[in-house]
Design a protein around this nucleic acid. Structure first.
Lengths: 180, 180
DNA sequence: TGAACATAATTAAGTTAGTTAAGTATTTTG
DNA sequence: CAAAATACTTAACTAACTTAATTATGTTCA
């Protein structure tokens, strides 16, 4: 008779283990994985609708989101999306050439740059809005008035804990890398 | 005096609008976006620790997750992660060559294939487990006993609604594409 | 002050991650 | 059993993305 093979748990905290097993945790992780793959698919479709790649669409809405009064810099945008700065430079330059984004020097620091969505970019996004509304209404169907605040709070805190977890994993992989 | 520019809301449902505005919704979406970018960063680190790319690591754990008694097929794996079947073929072939995965014909259908994590693959993953535990404990810090069931339920239902939303966006972009 | 160092963005060069299209083998359908 | 469909693979290619080097500016401190 074959023995019941049990993997090492992928999570340690007692709160997240059920009867000492991580099955439920792993299922959750894979659901999140599939969810985030679908978010990416949807961004590709949104982009396609306005003639952009999924990444360009993501950059455009991220610039809109991060720009304050003055604009957002290349580095901040790269960090937000976990891209390399040269990649952000190259893709945002394309958006500038399309007239969707403006790139102006930061007056307080000539090395830096202010990225902002242009009027044309704003117009393009509002053209997309009806489709976004339909898709987002369905995408977030499980979120409704009674749990909205909780889900928003959860998204914010998961994002923060994920940032810490990236730093930890950098540290662990850097220092404890196996030598075989 | 500059007029208060307000974008078209990106979501329609009243439940998700606050005072008719989608600011909170957009903030949530961008938090989820950043969260999912960090999940990807962490998978790259996990992969690096055992000599794999982030995608190869993701494929390996997804095979482990989806394999039933017999194994999982190329198509099912591709759908799960939103990759093309040829890409899954090529990457899983690399994992087979590394001895981490087995690929055997499905006896019931000679066209199909059964992918399974090999003993060597299981060993590799259990070598990684201590690091996964540390990182996952921190990554999911906002999840604890009192909200665990709710978060798991949310992950499952968001994954399901996202699948529907992908189909809808395919339909909308395919049929309503602007002609300018 | 000004030399050494650090930071922001870009350019150039290259790699990897992914795709679409075409082909083979098998299974299903009418 | 011929025609159509499905599963996977191979081949050919493109897009996504990185690292390394460069330019320009700003910061630090002997």
């Amino acid at each position: 008779m074959e023995q019941d093979i049990q993997f090492e748990p992928t999570v340690g905290r007692e709160d997240l283990l059920i009867a000492g097993k991580d099955d439920a945790f792993r299922e959750m992780v894979h659901n999140l994985l599939a969810f985030s793959a679908r978010l990416e698919q949807i961004r590709s479709r949104f982009g396609a609708f306005v003639g952009l790649s999924g990444v360009q669409y993501t950059l455009l809405i991220s610039i809109r989101q991060l720009q304050s009064e003055r604009g957002v810099g290349v580095r901040a945008l790269a960090d937000h999306l976990a891209f390399s700065p040269p990649f952000v430079t190259s893709e945002t330059t394309k958006l500038v050439k399309l007239g969707l984004v403006t790139k102006t020097p930061n007056p307080d620091d000539q090395r830096r740059v202010h990225l902002r969505v242009s009027d044309k970019g704003t117009a393009l996004l509002s053209q997309l809005a009806p489709i976004q509304q339909e898709v987002n209404d369905l995408l977030f169907e499980p979120v409704f008035a009674a749990n909205y605040a909780l889900v928003r709070q959860l998204a914010a805190s998961l994002r923060a804990s994920a940032e810490k977890a990236v730093l930890l994993s950098d540290y662990l992989v850097g220092t404890e890398r196996s030598d075989q």
